[in-house]
């Protein structure tokens, strides 16, 4: 196995508070699939998630039209979330890099279990932020103490009172 991946909480918090549009490559129409869980959760947290999957192109997933390719997604994307096998991730990264200016793509996020160090290096060289082998749903939940509600180890130690919206 390659080097462990270390991402600081500040880095991940910065990404998740800075993006709004997420293109989810490998989104599924089946509600028991991990991508469906992640998409529904991220929508509830205010992200606009656009599904990308050639097998489901034209269908609706959680109220959003699914597109066959990243290039077909209308408007700005911000972040590409890759739910594909590691050996297919590089191709998606290259597609994203080709579209980075037209679609304002600033972040490449590869899901838990997905990792391609060479593709990550290409994206970083092009000025993008990269996260690999993590899930944005889990990281969002972890950083906002929701993961802790289920008895999970968030790794967060803080004496600060978290600001929340009330009412």
């Amino acid at each position: 196995m390659s080097e462990p991946l270390n991402y600081s909480d500040e880095f991940l918090r910065g990404i998740l508070s800075g993006v709004r549009g997420i293109a989810m490559v490998g989104a599924s129409t089946k509600w028991t699939r991990p991508s469906y869980f992640a998409m529904k959760y991220l929508q509830e947290k205010g992200f606009r998630v656009i599904p990308v999957n050639p097998g489901a192109a034209g269908q609706e997933i959680l109220g959003e039209t699914c597109y066959a390719t990243l290039a077909e997604v209308p408007g700005s994307i911000d972040m590409v979330d890759i739910f594909r096998a590691s050996d297919a991730a590089g191709q998606t990264v290259d597609e994203a890099l080709a579209l980075k200016d037209s679609k304002n793509i600033r972040v490449i996020w590869m899901q838990l279990g997905v990792r391609d160090d060479a593709a990550a290096a290409r994206a970083q060289a092009a000025g993008l932020s990269v996260v690999m082998n993590r899930c944005p749903k889990i990281e969002y939940g972890r950083l906002h103490s929701e993961l802790s509600w289920g008895g999970f180890n968030s790794g967060i130690i803080s004496s600060k009172r978290r600001r929340i919206r009330i009412g």
Binding site: N6, Y7, N153, G155, I157
Partner: peptide, 22 residues
């Protein structure tokens, strides 16, 4: 992948117990 930043004694007091936000 992420290593522990804090020592055992710190974690036995703080882990799981951030200030209650409300």
């Amino acid at each position: 992948d992420n290593k522990e930043r804090f020592g055992f004694e710190t974690r036995m007091i703080h882990a799981g117990s951030q200030p209650e936000p409300v």
